[in-house]
Design a protein around this nucleic acid. Sequence first.
DNA 1: AAGGGCGACAACCGCCAACGA
DNA 2: GTCGTTGGCGGTTGTCGCCCT
Length: 227
Amino acid sequence: MGRQPCCAKVGLKKGPWSPEEDKKLLDFLLNNPLCCWRLVPKLAGLLRCGKSCRLRWLNYLKPDLKRGLLSESEEKLVIDLHAQLGNRWSKIAAQLPGRTDNDVKNIWNTHIKKKLVKMGIDPITHKPFSPSENPSDESHGEEEEEKTPVDSLCSDSEKSLASSSVSSSSVSSSSSNSTSLVKDEIIEVPPMEAPAIDWDEPMWLLEMDEFKGLEFLSNDFDENLCI
DNA sequence: AAGGGCGACAACCGCCAACGA
DNA sequence: GTCGTTGGCGGTTGTCGCCCT
């Protein structure tokens, strides 16, 4: 028996969300305790499937999201975590406050991957390409081949931060930084600075009453929603 | 000015795991 | 133990805007 689709495909809207839809979803989620995503579109008056609503909330509407490119330290962290975890974007994103797995995945694919390739580093293995398999014809010096991605991307002062945090062999106990469980392993990461309120939200969203008092956007908010 | 190429990002799809009946 | 439902995840695709010719 085939798996049922997450929602009846008939009559449901797909594609980009309109400001009105965003507002409806946001209004609903701000004013109602979340029961289950399947009911959200129905109760919020949206012609979307619950899954779509969930994604929109997590990737775009959630108040504490950071937008825009990664900072240098975030980028280093992503590279290190990727070296450890592979394409487990949600685990990687969990170490970056305000970033979503979709965000990290997109940034990896559009920026970091290319950057590594250009530097002669295989983004999958995180090791220098062997001369025969190097996709970029740009010559890279011997020195560069010896560098790790972190070495190549950051200054000396920053290297210490990155290398002390999540090198592939650093599932150790040397640091008192924050830790997180990834299945059986413990990943140690440096404490990221609190997400700055650096919103790049559409104007219509910023104009909404709910967003005029930022104190409102606390962690309690999320817990209340049980997300 | 037109349009083709490309990059960036939002959104969808399909699979899987967890959970409850 | 089985089945259905739901949420979560990662891969992929679609769309839009910018840049170059």
